[in-house]
């Protein structure tokens, strides 16, 4: 153990921040490097697998400009990411939902101060088989289908005007941020869902499932529908003010409610204090349009961008 620790220290002295997590969590190492020309060090990002493609795109672009900075992106899930973030093991946490009270308390206990920075927007699409004549569902109808204990087994039971089709449900597994988000918005409580559906963490499984059954219905990220418009039919959602089709435009202008959402990263004060951390965050927000497009998400509005930039400035204190 002793030799390990010494090793870490040597590495930390050499490159500002060693490859080992332990030395990175210590923070402050990066300050040894002068902030000017050459940035170096390791930036640890972990969290939501939904946000990971964004952080990956940011990391890739940033590393092209700063070859000596090692940005690492993990996918422990939003909850798992916050656990590591609040334990001081990571520098930035990817999150597809705002931080929860319990997680706030954990961060506080460790003295970790942070800001929530919006980086893009995501929409959830509700999809049905192409042969299904349904074009629009209200939030109430979705709730009737998906609420815990629901026994709806046919589209006809949802609304008498709907076709007589046996319902077969597909959705993400309970660990995903998408599941938390959908159940929170539709059923009113995160994690509350009927359980007799086919769960999968892989969007492709849901796609194949809904394609294969005429009465299939499922939900997942909007990006998939936009990439594969002919595979399935995305139904419009009526959140109280008429049917709105899911699309980049409707998510961004806020009319696609309630299934459009912002995606966040959480950055700690310590991260911003390191020159490479600050440079990375600034890069992330300045290039957010390209990053969001590459990761197939909806870019931020100008207002969101201004807010995110302000958050980074605020973190610097």
């Amino acid at each position: 153990m002793l030799s390990l620790t010494n090793r870490s220290r040597l590495a930390a002295a050499a490159v500002g921040c060693s490859l080992s997590l332990a030395a990175c969590g210590g923070g402050g190492d990066g300050e040894e490097v002068s902030g000017a020309a050459k940035l170096a060090g390791t930036i640890q990002i972990d969290g939501s697998s939904t946000v990971a493609p964004l952080s990956e795109a940011a990391a890739e672009g940033f590393q092209e400009e700063h070859k000596d900075v090692n940005v690492v992106v993990g996918t422990s899930g939003t909850g798992g990411g916050f656990e590591k973030f609040c334990a001081g093991e990571t520098d930035i946490s990817d999150a597809s939902r705002p931080i929860k009270d319990k997680e706030i308390a954990a961060c506080k206990a460790k003295g970790i101060t942070y800001e929530e920075i919006t980086v893009a927007n995501d929409g959830l699409a509700v999809v049905v088989n192409k042969d299904n004549p349904i074009t629009c569902l209200t939030v109430a109808q979705l709730k009737k289908i998906w609420e815990p204990g629901s026994t709806v087994a046919n589209f006809k039971e949802v609304d008498p005007s709907f076709p007589d089709l046996p319902l077969k449900l597909f959705g993400p597994g309970t660990d995903s941020g998408t599941f938390d988000y959908f159940t929170g918005e539709i059923n009113g409580k995160e994690g509350a869902s009927r359980t007799d559906y086919q769960p999968s963490e892989d969007d492709n499984v849901i796609v194949k499932g809904v394609q294969g059954v005429k009465g299939g219905l499922g939900y997942f990220g909007l990006s998939y529908v936009e990439e594969n418009p002919d595979a399935l039919k995305a139904v419009a959602i009526d959140g109280g003010s008429g049917c709105v089709k899911p699309s980049t435009e409707t998510v961004l202008d806020g009319t696609y409610k309630p299934l459009g959402r912002p995606l966040f990263i959480y950055a700690s004060t310590k991260t911003v204090q390191r020159p490479e951390g600050k440079a990375f965050l600034e890069y992330y927000v300045e290039n957010s349009d390209d990053i969001a497009k590459q990761a197939l998400y909806v870019p931020m509005s100008d207002k969101q961008k201004a807010e995110s930039a302000a958050k980074i400035t605020k973190l610097q204190g």
């Binding site: 390990l4 490859l19 972990d46 952080s55 890739e60 590393q63 992106v73 993990g74 422990s76 590591k84």
Partner: peptide, 15 residues
Amino acid sequence: ASGIIFLTRNPTDLL
């Protein structure tokens, strides 16, 4: 080990 999906450095030692 948190399921790293983006890493541009090859391992150089056990740590």
